[in-house]
Amino acid sequence: MLQRALEDDVLVLTLNRPDKRNALNLELCRALWDALDTAGTGDGSVRAVVITGAGSTFCAGADLDGVYGDDFLEAHYGMLGAITTVPVPVIAAVNGPAIGGGTQLAAACDLRMATAAARFAVPTARNGLAVDPWTIRRLVHLVGGGHTRGLLLAAETMDLAAALTSGLVQREGDVTDAIALAHDLAGLAPLSLAYAKHVLNSPQLADDDPSLRAKFLACFASEDAAEADAARRERRRPVFRGR
């Protein structure tokens, strides 16, 4: 159901329900949530995460043939929240259609890479369902109000070209490209990445919020900052340890 592969310090999570077009059910949401919680333990073994889908679909959304009650909603939104709070970058490798919950899953990630087969849609108006306010605001933040209105009110579908133009997708590429990018990110300073991600995903916090200030100052006082300075003077690549 969920394949996990650790490639050095990059965790690759593959939704593996190709017969259901990788639709999200309770078990898959819980498995993703657990994997992301494990990645955020802070032991340094995972520096970046890639999420992709098996077969030709990234994720067809929620499995409407399964149980779709409070337990599913809790697991679904808990999993999306875990993506935004895990202190390492998460990349969506969108290898095909990302519909409904699939678009939510991709949008929750920090960066998105997609192939020409990618399609994004949130057709809640076609099935009588709804997405939570966080998802709507997240889409507005990523692609702007006009594109979000098209997705939600007109039930439009975005292809790769539109996703690239809107900013929903940062780069064209497949899962191999996404893993290569993840390895690049894994070589960057973990505290700096975690701080930037925290600010980007916490728009409700004021600029003078104590938690933001503490994380900001911690970067300057870190061993990694000293290592970067030493590496510049010694003309070598820094080796960051996240402390």
Results as ranks from 00 to 15, higher is better:
Gln3Thr: 15
Arg4Ile: 00
Asn16Leu: 06
Ala31Arg: 10
Ala31Leu: 11
Asp34Ala: 14
Asp34Thr: 08
Asp37Gln: 15
Thr38Asn: 10
Ser45Phe: 01
Arg47Val: 06
Thr52Met: 10
Gly53Ile: 00
Ser56Trp: 02
Thr57Lys: 14
Cys59Pro: 08
Gly61Cys: 08
Asp63Pro: 08
Asp63Leu: 00
Tyr68Glu: 03
Thr84Met: 08
Val86Trp: 00
Val86Met: 09
Pro89Asp: 06
Pro89Asn: 06
Ala92Met: 09
Asn95Pro: 01
Ala98Asp: 02
Gly100Thr: 05
Gly101Ala: 04
Gly102Tyr: 10
Thr103Ile: 00
Thr103Ser: 12
Ala107Lys: 03
Leu111Lys: 07
Thr115Asp: 14
Ala117Ile: 03
Ala118Ser: 15
Ala118Pro: 00
Phe120His: 03
Val122Gly: 04
Pro123Ile: 05
Arg126Lys: 12
Asn127Ser: 14
Gly128Arg: 05
Ala130Phe: 10
Thr135Lys: 07
Arg137Gln: 13
Leu139Met: 14
Gly150Tyr: 11
Leu153Glu: 14
Leu153Gly: 10
Ala154Lys: 13
Ala154Gln: 09
Glu156Gln: 13
Leu160Lys: 06
Ala161Arg: 12
Ala162Pro: 01
Leu164Gln: 02
Leu168Cys: 04
Leu168Val: 00
Gln170Cys: 04
Gln170Asp: 12
Glu172Pro: 02
Val175Asp: 05
Thr176Met: 03
Ala178Ile: 12
Ala180Arg: 15
His183Val: 04
Ala189Glu: 14
Pro190Leu: 06
Leu193Tyr: 01
Lys197Pro: 00
Val199Leu: 11
Ser202Val: 03
Pro203Asp: 08
Gln204Cys: 13
Asp208Trp: 03
Pro210Phe: 11
Lys215Ile: 00
Phe216Thr: 05
Ala218His: 04
Ser222Met: 04
Glu223Ile: 07
Glu223Lys: 13
Asp224Leu: 03
Glu227Cys: 05
Asp229Glu: 13
Ala230Asp: 12
Glu234Leu: 14
Glu234Cys: 12
Arg235Asp: 06
Phe240Cys: 03
Arg241Lys: 05
